[in-house]
């Protein structure tokens, strides 16, 4: 199918809209929601991507527009790319390490399923953090408790959804899910360590050849 026809296919757009709307069902009915998300094909990758992008946009908007009392931003050191990566990198590493582990231990979810479930689980973050940006501009420091409770809620809700999601897509018990969440975090640390090791070694390798090149050019001239 050509790109144009894909873009003008009304059925596809309808399905995307439906699967996005389904996120609202998932966050309120996590068990049924996550089960149907993958097993009944109620979710789409497109919707998952849109939610992840929404998370990024929420973070950037919050950075810019949250009232200064709740927002300690030292602008000279802010880097948009870094801000985006601080969401994307943990997400990608979590998805990969979770899939890598669960696939060895009878997890039913595919890589796609894990990504989709995690992305759908981030919906409350977007839904709560966006209004919080507006709210922060209408409250004083004495009313900071409201803001902090909402902030905590958005994280706890998303966290809870991730656990539910993992339980449903891998068809695990709660205990096993919790165990694998902990193991996933350990695996994430290992991945980060390996990445650091890899990049340091590559950097050293490149540095060696550049200094060699420099040395030779110095000798020649």
């Amino acid at each position: 199918m050509s790109i144009l026809s894909r873009l003008t296919d009304r059925q596809r757009w309808g399905r995307l809209g439906g699967s996005l709307k389904y996120a609202l069902h998932v966050i309120t009915h996590p068990f049924d929601g996550f089960w149907d998300l993958t097993h009944e094909k109620r979710g789409t990758m497109g919707a998952a991507n849109i939610i992840v992008i929404a998370v990024l946009i929420t973070r950037l908007l919050a950075l810019e527009h949250t009232a200064f009392m709740f927002n300690e931003v030292y602008w000279p050191s802010v880097n948009i790319l870094q801000q985006c990566l601080s969401v994307l990198l943990p997400l990608v590493i979590f998805v990969i390490s979770n899939w890598g582990l669960t696939t060895l231990f009878e997890g039913k979810g595919t890589l796609k399923d894990v990504y989709m479930a995690t992305a759908y689980a981030l919906t409350p973050y977007v839904l709560l953090q966006l209004p919080m940006i507006v709210l922060s501009n209408w409250i004083t420091v004495d009313e900071a408790a409201f803001y902090n409770i909402l902030a905590t809620l958005s994280l706890v809700w998303s966290g809870g959804l991730i656990i539910c999601g993992m339980m449903m897509i891998h068809d695990y018990s709660l205990a096993k899910t919790l165990l694998f969440i902990v193991m996933t975090i350990a695996a994430m640390l290992i991945v980060v360590f390996l990445l650091l090791l890899f990049f340091t070694l590559v950097g050293d390798g490149v540095g060696y050849f550049t200094s060699l090149y420099k040395e030779i050019t110095f000798r020649l001239y």
């Binding site: 200064f68 009392m69 209408w138 004083t140 420091v141 004495d142």
Partner: peptide, 17 residues
């Protein structure tokens, strides 16, 4: 806001609101 003085800001903002 310019001086990031949140206590005084909140005081003023309460009246403004």
């Amino acid at each position: 806001k310019m001086a990031r003085d949140d206590k005084n800001y909140s005081e003023a903002f309460r009246y403004y609101r």
